[in-house]
Amino acid sequence: MARRNDKAPLRGRAGRMQGGRGSGRASQGAVRLWGRHAVEAALKNPQRQHRKLWATREGIASLDGELPADFPVEYADVADLGRLVARDAPHQGLVLECAPLEELHLADVIAPDSDTEEANRPIVILDQVTDPHNVGAILRSAAAFGACAIVTQDRHAPPESGVVAKSASGALEIVPWVRVVNLARALEDLAEAGYWRLGLAGEADATLAEALPAGRVAFVLGAEGEGMRHNIAAHCDALCRLPISAAMESLNVSNAAAIALYAAAAR
């Protein structure tokens, strides 16, 4: 990535921008990302097809590395960038429009079964977790603790978006995100690949420390409030709970995922 010369000609003027002014939505078939970490990670990701970057000069200067000389950049002021993103979104002077990441299949992310550390990286399964902030935070924890991938059901999960990317702080570009039609079938495929399917449920008798296996593990987490659906819980090999204080009924799903992933990394 190369930093653009401040003397480069502007591609349009602040306040006269095209391509979604005031809507906060990307053009058809595109994703709009914002914030330094999310944009910088996307720019460094060779799997991304970039279309256009709107930025303040301070935003460009904050990037680690340089943009190619022919990269499509339109300089703008803070107020105009605010019209390109979700309401009150912290864009930090950078808004990138790009193509969505390519679709992945579960088989693409499962390494051959072995005793190596790489093959035993955990997978996170999310059952109808629809809040994009939570999914983004889980992606960030997955990247921090070396998870293999996250898996969601296609119809009951947020789309790839600027909110997810900002909450993930760059992890959207690092952690594979697999969307499946049938989550129960995906759990069956994971069992066949040697994964122990461990569901987190507050009503379980065993604690996470007691139930955590030594080998491959897929953590299954349900939506806040409802928890895992009955059919998904039935596809788990075991259920476990986090040993939290009785003063609190439960934890946010992204906090629970982070604790489970840390426990797996610390085995």
Rank of each mutant, 00 (worst) to 15 (best):
A2E: 14
A2T: 14
R11F: 02
G12A: 10
G12L: 08
R13W: 11
G15Q: 10
R16S: 13
G20E: 08
G20S: 09
R21G: 10
S23D: 11
G24S: 10
Q28M: 10
Q28F: 06
G29D: 14
A30Y: 09
V31F: 09
R36L: 13
H37G: 13
A38N: 12
V39E: 12
E40R: 11
A42D: 14
N45Q: 13
Q49A: 15
A55C: 09
R57A: 14
G59Y: 02
G59D: 06
I60F: 03
A61N: 11
S62W: 00
L63M: 06
D70M: 02
P72Y: 03
E74D: 11
Y75S: 05
A76Y: 02
D77V: 08
A79N: 11
G82M: 04
L84D: 05
A86L: 02
A86G: 08
H91W: 00
L94A: 05
V95G: 03
L96M: 08
E97K: 01
C98K: 01
E102Y: 00
E103S: 13
A107V: 14
A111Q: 12
P112K: 12
P112C: 13
D115C: 06
E118N: 12
E118P: 05
P122A: 10
L126M: 12
T130M: 05
H133F: 06
V135A: 05
I138V: 03
L139C: 02
S141L: 00
A142C: 04
A142Q: 00
A143D: 09
F145R: 01
I150R: 01
D154A: 15
D154R: 15
A157I: 04
P159V: 12
E160F: 04
G162F: 06
V163E: 13
A165K: 04
K166H: 14
S167W: 03
A168I: 09
P176Q: 13
P176W: 07
P176I: 13
R179K: 15
V180G: 11
L183H: 10
A184R: 15
E188M: 15
G194S: 10
Y195R: 07
R197K: 14
A201S: 11
D205S: 08
G222S: 06
G225S: 06
M228K: 05
I232G: 04
A234L: 15
L239W: 06
L242M: 05
P243I: 09
M248P: 00
S250L: 01
V253H: 02
A257Y: 02
I259R: 01
Y262H: 12
A264T: 04
